[in-house]
Amino acid sequence: MIPRLITQICSHVLVPKRTRNPVWANAASGIDVHDDCKLKFLELKAKRTFRFIANAASGIAVHDDCKLKFLELKAKRTFRFIANAASGIAVHDDCKLKFLELKAKRTFRFIANAASGIAVHDDCKLKFLELKAKRTFRFIVFKIEEKQVIVEKLGEPAESYEDFAASLPEDECRYAVYDYDFVTLENCQKSRIFFIAWCPDTAKVRSKMIYASSKDRFKRELDGIQVELQATDPTEMGLDVFSSRAN
């Protein structure tokens, strides 16, 4: 009887009879939350007067056994995981534990996302930020090795486009970024950061598939890419192509 009464109280907006406003307005959703909801929750929390309080808006109540079982898992490690029946997907607690180890103790350099199968070494992002902010490098060549993207070569600022082109193997896929300088028609010196997905026709099919499927995931790690090129031979990434795409 009491839980049903609480449900009814929380599911209606009451007209206040007192001078103070008994509701808190949620400006984002336009829904008012009556202060009796909070009071009844405090009673449940402090005195355990009720077993649960239903949310009439969604029609779904959260049983306190959910919280109790979670506390058992957290404190006593009685369970390995608790599945979310709504989604059908359980998150193994080892995921959180390993992340906490990485965060607190730096036991690991990275944790791979099994969905894509490819991890990105944080040195890739660090070197890219140096190129972007300090212009420490003219170009960076990346390769996928042992299921992670790593830095293969760093081009010094004095190195030329020819040096960059020579750094890309003839029969293997690579990713690269290139800091391209140019002069506008108004005689202004500018630069553009190019991302190049190098995928020569002579590369192995499996390698092409891996680089193609991992490209977008890797690009998201490099905040500041301005132009993207996909090249299968040197003519598709020549200086004339850079010039036409830079403007």
Rank of each mutant, 00 (worst) to 15 (best):
K96W: 08
G155L: 06
D32R: 12
R51K: 08
L229W: 08
A104G: 07
R217H: 06
T136N: 07
R4G: 10
D65W: 05
K204I: 12
L129N: 10
I60Y: 11
D123I: 13
C188N: 15
F194T: 06
C124F: 03
L42D: 00
K76E: 13
K127W: 08
S243E: 14
W198F: 02
L239V: 11
A246G: 05
K17L: 12
I111T: 03
F164M: 01
D65N: 07
A83Y: 05
L129K: 13
G117S: 01
I53D: 09
D32Q: 09
A166E: 11
L44I: 02
E170G: 09
V227C: 10
E152A: 08
V33Y: 13
I60S: 11
K45V: 13
T202Y: 06
A203Y: 03
F108Y: 15
E236W: 00
A176R: 10
F164P: 01
K74L: 07
H92K: 09
F128H: 08
V62S: 13
E152T: 04
P234T: 15
F52N: 14
K96E: 12
R206V: 11
F81A: 15
T78K: 10
G30T: 09
Y175A: 12
L229S: 04
K38C: 00
K98C: 15
W24Q: 11
S243C: 10
V62M: 15
A176T: 07
L71F: 12
Y178E: 07
G59V: 03
D122E: 15
K208I: 07
K74M: 11
A112Y: 01
I150P: 01
A56I: 04
K204G: 12
D65V: 12
W24A: 13
N21Y: 11
V177N: 08
R192E: 11
H121I: 04
F41H: 09
S87V: 06
